[in-house]
Amino acid sequence: MFDLFARVFGREDASKDVAKERLRLVLMHDRGSLSPQALEDLKNDLLTVISKYLDIDQEGFQVDFSRHDESMALVANIPIKRRRV
């Protein structure tokens, strides 16, 4: 009753809800990330596989994580020169 009163009359959100929301976002990021070394390895592996099929522009080849509202995504930009097979 007391708490409801306080909340109706303009008290801010319960701070634990703020904590939970912040944790949700930061953990989404932490869980989805790779170390810089692992990301570099991933890039090189991708490059090897893709190069079997396509001749790609290695300079413009980019792989990175990005946050999409509710989840993390791995986004790759792979400029193609021509196909190999």
Binding site: D3, A14, S15, K16, D17, A19, K20, L23, R24, L27
Partner: peptide, 16 residues
Amino acid sequence: MVKRGDMMDIDDMIEI
């Protein structure tokens, strides 16, 4: 503190 909503409770921690 849990009671007044200023500390995460047991269920919050397990959920996360």
